[in-house]
Design a protein around this nucleic acid. Structure first.
Lengths: 215, 215, 215, 215
DNA sequence: TATGAATGAGAATTCATTCAT
DNA sequence: TATGAATGAATTCTCATTCAT
């Protein structure tokens, strides 16, 4: 009797594929419903894979969420890396960072929801993550260098904490986008209309550059 | 013979008390676990009241959440009203608004979680709220007047959209506080340490005032 | 201090009114949903009276159902009494009884549902009824006399059990009307269309009269 | 080394078995208590299966009821098919149909309760059934042929609507059996006593045959 | 690696009924 | 007589998770 031998390379690839399909489906589900509202059943449906397989690969819901979170961080870090801010003029670099942040959140809204969920759970999932490296943003260091370069050239004011600046840049986009539903309703303006979005970006650039640039 | 006279006010208050006790317990529960993670059972326990009563007063979980949300908005609007920004000098008023926002979020962290939950559900609960009045922030209008006053006096630059400014002020505090768990972990700094907090407040004031003040 | 004195006659009348309003609302509810599906809450709403009052007057759901059932029987017995079959010619009397049964069921569909509910519960509610008198149909006796009169006159065949005939007359209408929903669907005909109804009535008269009349 | 080979047929049968055990238990429960009074918990107990499994296979109570209803129709249709009325003499065929109906209702009293429940809910469950084929009785057509054959041979009268006749045959048995509890009580006769039952059957045959046979 | 079947614990919601006045 | 508030026990349904193969 012939045995059907499946070469390791293929089997592995299939298994990796399943894993990543699950991860992708889970990302969608968590983004849509939060950790508490996400359903393993729906993740299975989304992925067209058996529910049991999710447990096979990720042990339980929390660990699945953790994996999703890690992947999301990995992705944004990768994107940040490709910015090549170090090669730009200080003010151009800052502006580019503001724009990048805005666009990244805009194009990856799941990231915002994921962050929210993670923080609702007091960061438990991140703390338990082994992949600390991918989490730790190298951007702070880089930002410090840019600020220093700008200060030396006389373009920027001094005494700016890169972490504070980073948090501010993120916060300006984050709040607007993450809470866009309620804000749009309360203010009676569609904050996601193209014009509204471009106004927001201009405003943020003005605020951040107005701050870093020497009066 | 002594008659046991129970004034109507007390009987009435009982029902109002139950309602408000439930509302308070629900606020805690929703803040702690989000809408999806909140448990009606726990809300009943928290309030020392019968689970059935929650349904008696609020029909279902979503409507309870909505009521909690409305109450939270009512509360922050009330606090805003008491700021009396209109009586202050423009730059003082702006600074005070930044400080107020920061402190309010700091002292009422439930508000942040609630906002997150509401937006996770695409603002559905707010949209269904009948109490739109308490939701609509009168602050935008007031902020517009302050900006205009500052512009006229030559203190402030012109062309600032009060809504954008408001969102930025909120965003600077919001992101820092709402995501403090993961940020603290990633950056390896306790962002809630007293010193960190006061640094953040200074930074935010610099950013906002640096922006509004005429170079 | 003046005491507001309400004369007994008025108060009593109110109480009777409440009782009968509840009974009517309960009839509707039981007819619509059966005993198991009926809701005390809905009966209270229907009657615009307090739920507590239902218990005040009727002790519990089962006894309320029993009261409703008794009232329904009382009503049909009263209608039967007004038929005055005894004064008619035998064959006319039989035809009139068939027509009456059909029309009564048609106009009082609750009666059918009530009967169903009562029998689903093995007649428990009737057996516990004290009002047996109003339940016991005097019609059987009367029917016996009519059949005898017809037999003597040579119009009717002999040996007809009035109970069997009564049950048959009722059954011919009952099955058609009580199960009209499913029958209409299965047979693809609207059994409640005017033409269908009049055809049914003709058919039933033919069947019953064809049976009682001497070939 | 012995290999434990479990044929697919058994594994498959397990699931089918569970499904059919649930269906059977549900039939009993619905027959005993109606749709509103039936309890999923009791169905689970009856079937010695997990309550969760009921939802796994049937989604919810209504769909379970629908499945039970379909099965009941399937069963009676199957029994009807085995009657082979077409091979009999017209009058014999009619008598056999009356007897069959009576006996089927007698031996499958759940069918009556089920019909009642279905109609209490306005036939909603049947209408949503996809299995229309099993619902539609082929008997009407057959009955039409029998009536025609009888008419041609001069045995039967003409102008009989097979649907009306079918409904009448069913109604004569149905009313007696479905409402036997209250009828027995009201008339003070045990309608389920052997003698009473045989008298009923004779009566029904007389009524129906008296009607179809040419005077 | 993959999957359909099965389950216990729990969660939202409902219901008849009683309390207190 | 009338009523709003309160409740315990169910009841339907859900969810993460495991079994068996």
């Amino acid at each position: 009797m012939k045995e059907k031998v499946i070469p390791l390379s293929i089997r592995t690839r299939d298994s990796e594929r399943s894993r990543s399909v699950i991860l992708k489906s889970a990302l969608e589900e968590f983004a849509l419903h939060g950790l508490g509202g996400a359903r393993i059943d729906r993740i299975a449906e989304r992925s067209n894979l058996n529910k049991r397989l999710i447990y096979y690969y990720f042990s339980d819901k929390d660990q699945l969420f953790q994996a999703v979170l890690e992947a999301a961080y990995q992705k944004i870090r990768e994107s940040e890396r490709q910015l090549n801010l170090e090669s730009l003029q200080p003010s151009t670099a800052i502006r580019k960072l503001v724009e990048f942040t805005w666009n990244y959140y805009l194009e990856n809204p799941e990231f915002l929801t994921l962050l929210n969920s993670a923080n609702l759970h007091k960061g438990r999932h991140i703390e338990e993550s082994s992949n600390v490296l991918t989490l730790n943003s190298p951007l702070i260091e880089l930002l410090g260098e840019i600020l220093e370069k700008g200060r030396v050239s006389g373009e920027f004011r001094g005494g700016i904490d890169p972490l504070q600046l980073y948090v501010s840049i993120a916060g300006l986009s984050y709040f607007y986008l993450s809470n866009n539903s309620t804000l749009s309703f309360i203010f009676g303006r569609n904050l996601m209309a193209p014009k509204a979005k471009s106004e927001r970006l201009s405003h943020m650039c003005e605020v951040i550059l107005g701050y870093v640039l020497r009066g």
